[in-house]
Design a protein around this nucleic acid. Structure first.
Length: 456
RNA sequence: GGCCGAGUGGCAGAGUGGCCAUGCAGCGGAUUGCAAAUCCGCGUACGUCGGUUCGAUUCCGGCCUCGGCCUCCA
């Protein structure tokens, strides 16, 4: 079996061949920590988490870095508005981001480098770029000179003329070329800044990722991921810097970009204001349901988000957990996901197809008669869940979730109902069931005469 | 304007040149005291107009509609 990934750079699916199979490297652009992450921000974290899990199952060592941008104009603005140091803002939202992602079943990456911890590396890289004639200093800024890199534009598929023609930004007078972008910019005394050969300043956005990749993963990485909107200018610029700083070496072998979440077909974004934060969503739905919903569409496709999306995901997971609950006391006999599921994921992370395989497993488990088959199917289902990062909880806990349950009371009610049923007083039995139902508990009469319960 | 993507059943959403996605919801049946759960079954789904083909939702072309990037943005 082989792993196939779609590469934005070549615009086709390619066989994934790591440079060093003993050390696979992946870098994904993480959050700028100045606010709560919305569910759209969570998509790359979840998508690349699935890829991380898949890679870990195939290769002995996977180095996965996801950065935190903790120096940025928006952070400065937030800090100023609240009258606190930027660290107060960035520490708070870094912690919240990690907690949110954890609730979504996202494994911690191998590395979580932050920009402010890598200023010397950024300065060093800028100096290399200047020494090689790819960058120049002007009025306290250091600019990357785009015409110095002939490959510029290959990732986003646009040529310089297009960009200049469509440019909506005003061209700063000190730019040698309208397409040149900033590597270092001056800071005013009231803003965060670091000493540099070009005066006190702060890094441009793009250099941050390139410097951290170089520092932790090396000159060439296997996979670089992020949201679709980062292709231009962010990744195009990263590619230019990284390639030029390393004398033309490949910067990243595979570029992967996830599509957007939409609300009513329109991109979810902070500027449009049509966002819903993970923090808010978690108040009404388990993180695993949000994760399932996020994986419900192929990662490169848009995904329309609504309350209905979450409700459907929750209902589907409920069903799977009910099936697991039925066999919870049987010891699993397999730890391998079905081939069809693995193959779906290995075909450019086809999570919807993988989820269809999970549904097939659930159905088979519900139909299984003998204990051996149940044990095997349970193992396969759990293994499949591990790959996708779902179905790892105790079914009883999942089904009882979010309710303040007085178990003794329920058992008492069930017993009372059992006596009523025995006496064929069904009216009373139904009345009791109604009372239990009113408390949010659903009861179920099993073929063997027992009665079990679960939260609705 | 340039570049890119998408239009699939009530909803979400895969995929394929001829046969089945899958889940949620709905309907019918089995089961049940009744339910719930579960199982079985059902619904003339592939924007539009042409072309290629024995056959197209799937390939090609036109058209319509929608979205994304080109500015911070996952």
């Amino acid at each position: 079996m082989s792993l196939i990934l779609y590469n934005t750079l070549t615009r086709r699916k390619e066989l994934f061949t790591p440079l060093d199979p003993g050390r696979v490297t992946m870098y994904v652009c993480g959050p700028t920590v100045y606010n709560y992450a919305h569910i759209g921000n969570a998509r790359p974290a979840v998508v690349f988490d699935v890829l991380f899990r898949l890679l870990k199952a195939r290769y002995p060592q996977v180095l996965y870095a996801r950065n935190t941008t903790d120096v940025d104009d928006k952070i400065n603005a937030a800090a100023k508005a609240q009258g606190v140091p930027i660290r107060t803002i960035t520490d708070k939202f870094t912690a919240i981001y990690r907690a949110d992602m954890s609730a979504l079943g996202v494994l911690p990456p191998t590395l979580e480098p932050s920009a402010t911890e890598h200023i010397p590396q950024m300065i060093a890289m800028i100096e290399v770029l200047m020494a090689k004639g790819h960058a120049y200093a002007a009025e306290g800024h250091v600019m990357f000179h785009v015409p110095s890199f002939t490959g510029y534009g290959q990732l986003s598929g646009r040529n310089r003329d297009d960009m200049i023609a469509g440019a909506r930004v005003e061209v700063a007078p000190f730019k040698k070329d309208p397409a040149d972008f900033v590597l270092w910019k001056p800071s005013t005394p009231d803003l965060p800044g670091w000493d540099s050969p070009w005066g006190r300043g702060r890094p441009g956005w793009h250099i941050e990722c390139s410097a951290m990749i170089e520092a932790h993963l090396g000159p060439t990485i296997d996979i670089h991921g992020g949201g679709h909107d980062l292709i231009f200018p962010h990744h195009e610029n990263e590619l230019a810097q990284g390639t030029c700083a390393h004398g033309g070496k490949t910067y990243a072998q595979v570029w992967m970009h996830n599509g957007f979440l939409t609300m009513d077909k329109e991109k979810m974004s902070k500027s449009l204001g049509n966002i819903v934060t993970v923090h808010e969503l978690l108040k009404n739905a388990p993180g695993e349901a949000l994760r399932w919903a996020l994986l419900g569409a192929h990662y490169r496709q848009p995904l329309d988000w609504s309350d209905e999306t979450v409700a459907q995901a929750k209902a589907t997971l409920d069903r799977a957990y009910r099936a697991l609950g039925e066999v919870w006391d049987i010891e699993a006999k397999s730890n391998t996901a079905p081939t069809a599921l693995t193959e779906a994921l290995e075909d450019d992370l086809n999570t919807p197809k993988a989820m269809a395989e999970i549904a097939a497993l659930v159905k088979a488990l519900n139909s299984a008669k003998d204990a051996d088959e149940k044990a095997r199917l349970k193992g396969e289902l759990l293994a499949a869940g591990t790959l996708l990062g779902v179905l790892q909880q105790d079914p009883e806990k999942w089904l009882a979730k979010d309710l303040d349950i007085d178990e003794a009371w329920i058992i008492q009610m069930i017993e009372a109902r059992a006596s009523a049923r025995k006496a064929r007083d069904f009216k009373e039995a139904d009345r009791i069931r109604g009372e239990i139902a009113a408390a949010g508990i659903e009861i179920k009469d099993n073929p063997d005469g027992t009665t079990t319960w679960a939260a609705k």
